[in-house]
């Protein structure tokens, strides 16, 4: 049997389908259409109702493979990998895409080895090559300084993870029809060597930076940790999350989960505001695919201005309070 069909790996948590799942459907729908094939989505978890799976049909999928098991409540890579590997070997899709999230970037490499497939990380664009029908995968490398287009000419499935928030989530259309298929597994999928002991929420004092529409980040220009309050307040006023440059994190002004850049997180919000951040290559790698970028810095030659849509050269301690006032008037 030759490989056929495009799959997305949906993410489930806290009783809801995560937004990345709908973004993947936006990405994958045109791939399936170009190949004249079906778009399926895999949903793994516990307590998954048909109604939940149907949401993925409304958002563009033709078929949903639901794997619902008490042992699959939380993501444990070995168990999810055993499930996905079995599904891939059984149904032989030609393309499998997941989010470039902590789950997708752990699960897909694990599965790629088991099914002997090629995998491309953190893609920002996917397309089908005319003629060959191969998946064209574009991704940033070397800190975003180059873009590489990658193909998997022979091995199937062609697998990729896709950077979150780089495309709109698919719109809902309740008229769409599709099929829900429940796949069952025995205890053989459970790896007894791994046990999830607990989970504690990040104390972000607001939104998580990879999920937020607005991120306000501070850097060395803030001069001392106390001044980070300015960033926190501005983020709060805008309903955004707080980020920091490596410099700010290394000085202990803000904790590591907030770090944006090559050794921290990559964020793609609708609006990124860089305050007192000069914009090292590493920092730019983590934020330059944001939809809009505003930079405030006292050095007119700071590299951050090159990637900004809007730059202000000046003293941040003078400008930020004025932004507050203007914001209050506008809101």
């Amino acid at each position: 049997m030759s490989s056929k069909g495009v799959w997305t790996i949906s993410e489930w948590g806290e009783d809801r389908i995560k937004t990345i799942s709908f973004e993947l459907l936006t990405r994958a729908r045109p791939l399936a259409d170009k190949l004249n094939t079906e778009l399926s989505s895999v949903l793994i978890g516990r307590g998954l109702e048909d109604e939940t799976a149907r949401e993925l049909i409304y958002r563009g999928a033709d078929k949903i493979y639901v794997v619902d098991d008490k042992n699959l409540e939380s993501f444990i890579v070995e168990n999810y990998s055993a499930v996905l590997t079995a599904l891939i070997l059984k149904h032989k899709p030609e393309i499998v895409v997941a989010g470039a999230t902590t789950m997708g970037r752990t699960l897909l490499p694990h599965v790629a080895v088991k099914v002997n497939a090629g995998l491309t990380a953190d893609c920002t664009s996917l397309d089908i090559e005319e003629g060959s029908g191969n998946l064209l995968q574009v991704r940033p490398a070397i800190g975003g300084n180059i873009m590489a287009r990658i193909k998997t000419p022979e091995k199937r499935p062609q697998m990729a993870t896709v950077r979150p928030k780089t495309i709109r989530p698919a719109q809902r259309d309740e008229k769409r029809q599709g099929v829900i298929i429940r796949e069952r597994f025995g205890n053989e999928i459970i790896d007894s060597r791994v046990e999830r002991v607990g989970h504690r929420k990040l104390d972000t004092g607001g939104a998580e930076i990879q999920d937020a529409d607005i991120v306000v980040s501070g850097g060395a220009g803030l001069k001392k940790g106390d001044n980070f309050k300015i960033i926190q307040e501005l983020a709060k006023t805008l309903g955004g999350a707080v980020g920091g440059s490596r410099n700010a994190v290394d000085r202990g002004w803000i904790s590591y989960p907030h770090q944006v850049g090559l050794s921290g997180k990559t964020v793609t919000p609708k609006l990124y505001i860089a305050v007192g951040i000069s914009g090292s290559i590493q920092h730019l790698a983590g934020m330059k695919t944001s939809e809009h970028i505003i930079a405030i810095n006292n050095d007119p030659d700071a590299p951050i201005f090159k990637v900004a849509d809007f730059g202000v050269v000046g003293d941040l301690f003078e400008i930020i309070p004025l932004i507050y006032e203007a914001l209050k008037e506008a809101m």
Binding site: G118, T120, P140, I146, M147, T152
Partner: peptide, 12 residues
């Protein structure tokens, strides 16, 4: 399994 097919400079 994978091949780099093309390299280009992004619009930054």
């Amino acid at each position: 399994p994978t091949r780099v097919d093309k390299i280009f400079t992004p619009k930054v």
